[in-house]
């Protein structure tokens, strides 16, 4: 799965958790879930669980700790997918 495709999948996952629908149109690697999309921190947990289900990966606590931006989240997904493939 290429990076653009991953970002699109991620946007689908985060959409129900943000009220900043206009900010969704400008999502890029540097988008911050809390600062830019005003996602409630309790809903970040839902996003992590949705990602685990969607990509069939397991996200450990250290990886979860970094997942505050699109960039960091994509990096975690990519590395977990790679580990699964290998």
């Amino acid at each position: 799965m290429d990076k653009q495709h991953l970002i699109e999948e991620l946007i689908t996952i985060i959409t129900p958790y943000t009220e900043e629908k206009s900010a969704l149109e400008r999502v890029g690697e540097n988008t911050d879930f809390i600062k830019d999309l005003k996602i409630n921190s309790a809903n970040l947990v839902d996003i992590i669980l949705d990602i685990e289900e969607k990509f069939k990966i397991e996200i450990d606590n250290d990886s979860m700790a970094k997942m505050l931006t699109v960039k960091a989240t994509i990096e975690v997904i990519e590395s977990k997918l790679q580990a699964n493939a290998g």
């Binding site: 409630n40 309790a42 947990v45 839902d46 992590i48 669980l49 606590n61």
Partner: peptide
């Protein structure tokens, strides 16, 4: 919180 978050969701509590 009742509307926004379903903490009874599977694995939710384990994460936090």
């Amino acid at each position: 919180a009742k509307i926004q978050s379903n903490w009874r969701r599977k694995n939710y509590l384990d994460k936090i």
